[in-house]
Amino acid sequence: MRIALVTDAWEPQVNGVVRTLQSVRRVLERQGHVVEVISPDRFHSLPCPTYPEIRLAMVRTATVGGLLARFAPDAIHLATEGPLCVAARRWCLRQRFPFTTAYHTQFPDYVSARSGVPAEWIWRYIRWFHAPAQAILASTPSIRATLVAHGLDQVRHWGRGVDLDRFHADIPPLAQIAALPGPRLLYVGRVAVEKNLEAFLACSHPGSKIVVGDGPARTALAAAYPDALFLGPRFGDELAQCYAAADAFVFPSRTDTFGLVMIEALACGTPVAAYPVTGPVDVLTPDVGAMADDLDAAIAAALTRDRGACAAYARQFTWEASAEQFLQALVPIAEVRSAA
């Protein structure tokens, strides 16, 4: 199958959306599918206000449409709600081509956290963007329920995976973290206001706090919490070693749709502490993590979990299964047009 994947989130961004798209693309291409990625790096772009790492493509509908027409896809997927996918959406509607979309991030909550704009105002845009899609792909039952509650009921499940060849219980711990006083409490992800990272850094549980990742809030948080170790971004085997060196992984976000980093930590045998919100409630079980409105209590409970059980639980999350769900949700253009 020839699959057009249009996305406003792509390299060099480092986040769960990009990692998901890259991982699924690799599996699909190994299976013989042809995946054409149309992303902001192919166009003139501007930095997103308050989030300069994200580039917003300045592109005309005809330009995106020309790329899609030349590729001649069997199916089209619009991964994000940014300007590039808006242009592709407009072209698809003009051509009467079906397309699928995905709800990767709690965009209304993110915008509200950064700007103070009421989240419901942003939901009007979300409904407009996704309403014409043949299917909206969502990673958890909680996100499905959220979309349905906002009038979007054409939802299909699209789970997430973990690279079990890289993230596993036998990975050696990173010496820099392992040398710190325990318990070693780790956060991995974007260092940004919507990740609620300050809740982790301000918690009173004893031990060492380690932050792996980068983002617009890093400088301010590092200055405010000098006792925490900010390692910056880590990738590949070194990232796996960070997970393996931690006694607990702390996930303070209240706005993520899934939390890919949680299953990476679990695959390395590291239990997870989190709030009982969308993402953690869909991913964690009592055997591998702990959730509480008091993050200190969640950390204390997570530290009692068995590392072997964590690693065994994570092995159910594979990118092969995720890619198959993605593939099954796609809507072939020829089928819809022949039925019209």
Results as ranks from 00 to 15, higher is better:
30 R>Y: 01
31 Q>R: 15
31 Q>Y: 01
32 G>L: 03
32 G>Q: 04
33 H>M: 03
34 V>N: 11
34 V>T: 13
34 V>H: 13
35 V>W: 12
37 V>T: 10
38 I>S: 02
39 S>C: 13
39 S>I: 00
39 S>G: 05
40 P>I: 10
41 D>R: 13
43 F>R: 05
44 H>C: 03
45 S>V: 01
45 S>I: 00
45 S>Q: 10
46 L>R: 15
47 P>E: 14
49 P>Q: 14
49 P>S: 12
50 T>R: 14
50 T>K: 12
51 Y>G: 00
51 Y>C: 03
53 E>F: 07
54 I>S: 12
54 I>C: 10
55 R>S: 11
55 R>C: 01
58 M>I: 11
58 M>D: 05
59 V>E: 01
59 V>N: 01
61 T>Y: 01
62 A>G: 06
64 V>R: 10
66 G>Y: 03
66 G>T: 04
67 L>V: 00
68 L>G: 03
69 A>Y: 07
70 R>D: 14
70 R>W: 10
72 A>Q: 14
73 P>G: 06
73 P>L: 15
74 D>L: 07
75 A>T: 02
75 A>M: 06
76 I>W: 10
77 H>P: 02
78 L>D: 06
79 A>D: 01
82 G>I: 04
85 C>S: 04
85 C>E: 11
86 V>I: 12
86 V>G: 04
87 A>R: 05
88 A>W: 06
88 A>L: 11
88 A>N: 06
89 R>W: 03
89 R>I: 06
91 W>Q: 04
91 W>L: 08
92 C>F: 08
92 C>Y: 03
94 R>Y: 02
94 R>C: 09
94 R>F: 05
95 Q>E: 15
96 R>L: 09
97 F>H: 13
99 F>A: 01
99 F>N: 01
100 T>C: 15
100 T>R: 01
103 Y>W: 14
104 H>Q: 13
104 H>L: 09
106 Q>A: 15
107 F>A: 08
107 F>S: 02
108 P>A: 13
109 D>S: 14
110 Y>K: 06
110 Y>E: 10
112 S>A: 15
114 R>G: 00
116 G>S: 06
118 P>I: 14
118 P>F: 11
118 P>H: 11
119 A>V: 01
119 A>R: 14
120 E>L: 12
121 W>I: 07
121 W>D: 08
121 W>R: 13
124 R>K: 11
124 R>D: 08
125 Y>D: 05
125 Y>A: 07
125 Y>H: 03
126 I>N: 07
128 W>I: 00
128 W>L: 14
130 H>V: 05
131 A>S: 15
132 P>S: 08
134 Q>I: 00
134 Q>H: 10
135 A>E: 10
135 A>R: 15
136 I>N: 04
136 I>L: 12
139 S>K: 09
140 T>R: 09
142 S>L: 02
142 S>Y: 02
142 S>V: 01
145 A>M: 07
